[in-house]
Computed example of a mutant assay.
Amino acid sequence: MPKISMTDFVDFVVKAGSPKMTKVRQVRDRGGYNPAHDFWRLFRNDIVEFHQNGFRDKKRFDRLLGKLTDHKKQKRYPEAIKGYKKFLGRKNIEWFTPPKELWSHSGLDVRVNPELGLVINGDRFIIKLYFKDEKLTKYKVPVIGALMISALASECDDSDKFAILDVSNSKLITFEDQVADVMPLLAGEAYSFISIWDAL
């Protein structure tokens, strides 16, 4: 039974035609998680550490810039760090541990693992971080929301809000209860993913 990231599944869902097969092959051939291939790991871990330890000084993130040796990271990290610092602004923020679960259908397991559980000005948010340069489209947002709500709602308080943070653009997008509208699509796409996986 394949176990894949939510990012990979969302990328598969929004593709059409032969790029779907290309995506499945890419996921299958890549193998398990390798930290060396995780472009945003340093910054993502720093964000989590920042909140877990209750740090307040946003300049702490600038430390990362001096540690970067990869040219691509030197080019892309500054904008993301600037965006996250802008998102933080003057908000009163406290940490809680976000839930992590599997969403499973048709023999496919999708890891739903939001990075942040933040109480922001009194409201609890469960947040998935989005770092890609590729625009966060109106097609991706409801898919991400449905996966998070479907997989995690039973582990959360009724008042918890699910969201995705477009880091570079400092934009926090909260989801309405979109599960009912999107679930038939996700079920069909999971079946399609497995069919292609088995055929390759």
Results as ranks from 00 to 15, higher is better:
residue 145 G to F: 04
residue 103 W to D: 07
residue 41 R to C: 01
residue 158 D to L: 15
residue 24 V to E: 00
residue 53 N to C: 13
residue 6 M to F: 07
residue 181 D to P: 05
residue 70 D to I: 09
residue 60 R to C: 02
residue 160 D to T: 07
residue 105 H to Q: 12
residue 92 N to P: 03
residue 38 D to R: 03
residue 174 T to N: 03
residue 45 N to I: 08
residue 122 G to F: 06
residue 114 P to L: 03
residue 130 Y to A: 02
residue 130 Y to T: 05
residue 85 K to R: 01
residue 13 V to T: 07
residue 121 N to H: 10
residue 108 L to Y: 01
residue 64 L to K: 05
residue 199 A to H: 15
residue 174 T to I: 02
residue 191 Y to R: 14
residue 23 K to R: 11
residue 52 Q to V: 09
residue 28 R to S: 06
residue 143 V to Y: 02
residue 106 S to Y: 07
residue 162 F to G: 05
residue 6 M to I: 08
residue 18 S to N: 11
residue 95 W to E: 03
residue 88 L to Q: 03
residue 99 P to A: 00
residue 200 L to G: 05
residue 112 V to H: 05
residue 147 L to N: 10
residue 113 N to L: 11
residue 164 I to G: 03
residue 163 A to T: 01
residue 185 L to A: 12
residue 93 I to M: 12
residue 189 E to T: 00
residue 6 M to A: 09
residue 57 D to N: 15
residue 116 L to A: 00
residue 115 E to T: 02
residue 47 I to M: 10
residue 108 L to W: 02
residue 13 V to H: 02
residue 70 D to N: 15
residue 38 D to N: 08
residue 16 A to H: 12
residue 103 W to E: 04
residue 148 M to E: 14
residue 54 G to N: 00
residue 117 G to I: 03
residue 5 S to D: 09
residue 50 F to P: 10
residue 184 P to L: 11
residue 165 L to N: 02
residue 16 A to K: 14
residue 30 R to V: 03
residue 10 V to N: 05
residue 95 W to Y: 10
residue 22 T to E: 12
residue 180 A to E: 13
residue 151 A to M: 02
residue 151 A to W: 00
residue 44 R to H: 14
residue 104 S to D: 08
residue 59 K to T: 12
residue 73 K to F: 04
residue 10 V to C: 11
residue 24 V to P: 00
residue 197 W to H: 04
residue 179 V to K: 09
residue 159 S to L: 06
residue 118 L to C: 01
residue 122 G to E: 04
residue 115 E to P: 06
residue 152 L to G: 01
residue 144 I to S: 03
residue 172 L to D: 07
residue 30 R to Y: 13
residue 151 A to R: 03
residue 134 E to N: 10
residue 160 D to A: 12
residue 147 L to F: 09
residue 107 G to W: 00
residue 48 V to K: 09
residue 83 G to C: 07
residue 123 D to R: 15
residue 1 M to E: 06
residue 88 L to Y: 05
residue 194 I to W: 00
residue 157 D to I: 14
residue 19 P to L: 05
residue 3 K to D: 03
residue 124 R to N: 14
residue 140 K to E: 15
residue 183 M to L: 15
residue 75 K to Q: 13
residue 95 W to M: 01
residue 145 G to N: 06
residue 95 W to D: 03
residue 71 H to W: 13
residue 100 K to A: 15
residue 152 L to I: 06
residue 199 A to W: 15
residue 138 K to T: 12
residue 92 N to K: 14
residue 116 L to P: 01
residue 60 R to M: 10
residue 14 V to Q: 00
residue 162 F to D: 04
residue 13 V to D: 05
residue 51 H to D: 06
residue 115 E to Y: 06
residue 123 D to P: 09
residue 173 I to H: 07
residue 34 N to H: 11
residue 52 Q to E: 11
residue 36 A to Q: 10
residue 155 E to K: 15
residue 124 R to F: 07
residue 159 S to T: 11
residue 65 L to G: 14
residue 195 S to G: 14
residue 125 F to M: 02
residue 200 L to C: 09
residue 116 L to W: 02
residue 104 S to P: 06
residue 56 R to H: 13
residue 51 H to C: 08
residue 12 F to H: 00
residue 128 K to F: 10
residue 114 P to W: 05
